[in-house]
Simulated scan of single mutants.
Amino acid sequence: MQNSTPIPQNTTSQQPLSQPNGAHDAAEELKNALMKTARQLELKALFEGLAEGYHAGQLGVARSLLKMQLPRDTILQATGLTEEELDRLDDQ
């Protein structure tokens, strides 16, 4: 004969902890703020990387123009580099 009494199972690890609504709302707000900050940092890093890449490209163009012996004023105007940046390239 089988026992018809159900055996209780440990369900505490399967159910989420109950939180008062205020705590849940505050946690959700914090999560959203952190996600927003993370996204802003991600975009900042992306734009900084793009700016560095653009600048590196301008330096490469300037090197080529220096090898072609174009006038410095023309190179500065074409690349948007500063006199100091062009001087450093010219010294290399």
Rank of each mutant, 00 (worst) to 15 (best):
A56N: 06
G57R: 10
Q19T: 06
H24D: 07
E83R: 09
K36V: 08
E84T: 12
P16H: 02
Q92W: 09
T11W: 10
A78V: 11
S13N: 05
Q69T: 12
M35V: 13
L65V: 06
R39Q: 11
D90R: 14
L65P: 03
R88H: 14
N32L: 13
L46E: 14
L81R: 04
Q58W: 01
G22D: 12
A23D: 13
Q77C: 00
L86W: 13
S18E: 14
D91I: 00
Q19D: 04
P6Y: 02
P16A: 08
M68N: 09
Q40I: 07
G53H: 08
S4T: 13
S13G: 10
Q92D: 15
D90G: 05
L30K: 15
N10M: 06
A62R: 09
I7G: 00
L65S: 04
R39P: 00
N3D: 13
T79L: 03
L17Y: 01
A33S: 04
T12A: 15
T11R: 12
L34E: 11
T37C: 02
T11A: 10
L86C: 11
L17A: 11
P16K: 05
A56P: 00
Q19F: 15
L50I: 14
A23C: 05
M35A: 15
M1A: 11
E85G: 05
G57T: 06
Q14T: 11
L17T: 07
L34A: 08
A45M: 06
E42T: 12
R72E: 14
A23M: 13
L59R: 07
M35F: 11
S13E: 05
S13R: 05
S13K: 03
S4I: 12
A78Q: 07
T74G: 00
T74E: 12
T12K: 15
P8Q: 05
K31H: 15
K31S: 15
E84I: 08
G60E: 05
N10Q: 09
L81P: 02
Y54C: 01
N10A: 12
K67R: 07
L70K: 04
R72A: 13
T37V: 11
G49I: 11
L81F: 04
L50R: 12
F47R: 07
G53W: 09
E29H: 07
E52Y: 04
K36G: 02
L59H: 07
A38Q: 09
Q2E: 10
I7A: 08
M1Y: 05
A56R: 10
Q40Y: 09
T82K: 08
R39H: 08
G60L: 03
Q69E: 14
P71W: 09
P6R: 02
V61Q: 05
F47S: 02
A26N: 00
I75V: 09
V61I: 15
S4D: 12
N32G: 01
Q14G: 12
L43C: 01
K31Y: 15
A26E: 03
D91W: 00
L59N: 04
D25H: 10
K31M: 14
T74S: 05
L34S: 07
K67F: 00
T82H: 01
K67V: 02
M68G: 06
N32I: 07
P6Q: 01
L34H: 08
E52V: 06
R72I: 13
A78Y: 03
G57C: 11
E42K: 14
E29V: 03
L50Y: 10
I75P: 01
Q9V: 14
A33M: 04
G57V: 06
L76A: 06
Q58F: 01
S13H: 07
E29C: 01
K31I: 14
P8W: 07
